[in-house]
Design a protein around this nucleic acid. Structure first.
Lengths: 142, 142
DNA sequence: CCTTTTGGTTATCAAATGATAACGAAAAGA
DNA sequence: TCTTTTCGTTATCATTTGATAACCAAAAGG
């Protein structure tokens, strides 16, 4: 397998991931948030608390735009803000109760759709999936 | 491994794929096209010729918006339009020479970045990657 | 101290995208 | 033939996102 063919497989794979992600997160539009706001909340589900700079890096947003979206999330009551007492320039953001609840609803729906996709797979097959995820994460999508 | 944990791994994996894709396609902004226009051209690199409806489905765009973007691509001379003689409602789009060339440039850059990611991996490891891609594609991202 | 750097915010503007209505032309179907 | 459905286009508007400049406050570093 030459590199060029592998590369094309990766591109088309990434495209499929995008498509499935889009389909699974379809429930986002029922809640009153935009797509980038969802990305921020999703990130906070895994890392918390988090500073605007970190978010800007990971969600690929400029710092001013990150700040704007965080303000909107604050206004909606979906996250909370605190200050790092060790370095008072750093603003620490975390999900509010309401934010947790919202993400719980969305993840719940998403997970149901995910369950449908993997319905009927054996435990061994699920383990294979998990290993494939870890392999690609380590070697390609790091 | 319970379903909930696997689900979370998939979500965070998808997020990593997004991020790496974003980084690899950074070269798109050097060319005079937008992100969705790039997605359309990318799709046409794999499937050709293609109708507006197919694109709308695969790129997750409404038909009117697809039509608008295709018109812009036509205006830029990056694709060409024909009619399906068997069903004259169907419009067949394909990349023009110039469109091919443009995508060649972008894919070239992307592939270089990809090469850096997989630099130093053995043939066996590359095969593992390929198999992992196929597995996930078949079981999860279909 | 004083200067520079870092982290963050606000404001503002341009561009891209999403959504919808209205329309036409070809095909399918009664 | 007449009606309905499918495929596509154009136009228009609202919203989202991207980009940039100007600014403040805290920290770092001399």
């Amino acid at each position: 397998m030459d590199h060029s063919a592998l590369f094309q497989k990766v591109v088309s794979f990434a495209s499929a991931v995008h498509e499935v992600t889009h389909e699974m997160t379809r429930g986002v539009k029922d809640e009153d948030i935009t797509h980038v706001q969802y990305k921020i909340l999703e990130y906070m589900m895994f890392v918390q608390p988090v500073t605007p700079s970190e978010i800007a890096d990971c969600v690929n947003l400029s710092l001013p735009n990150t700040s704007r979206e965080l303000r909107k999330l604050l206004e909606k009551g979906l996250c909370e803000k605190g200050v790092d007492e060790a370095d008072r320039r750093r603003q620490m953001f975390r999900l509010s109760e309401e934010g947790q609840a919202l993400m719980g609803r969305i993840f719940g729906q998403e997970q149901m759709r995910f369950e449908q996709r993997i319905a009927g797979l054996s435990a061994a097959e699920l383990t294979e999936i998990e290993q494939a995820l870890e392999l690609l994460r380590k070697r390609v999508f790091k």
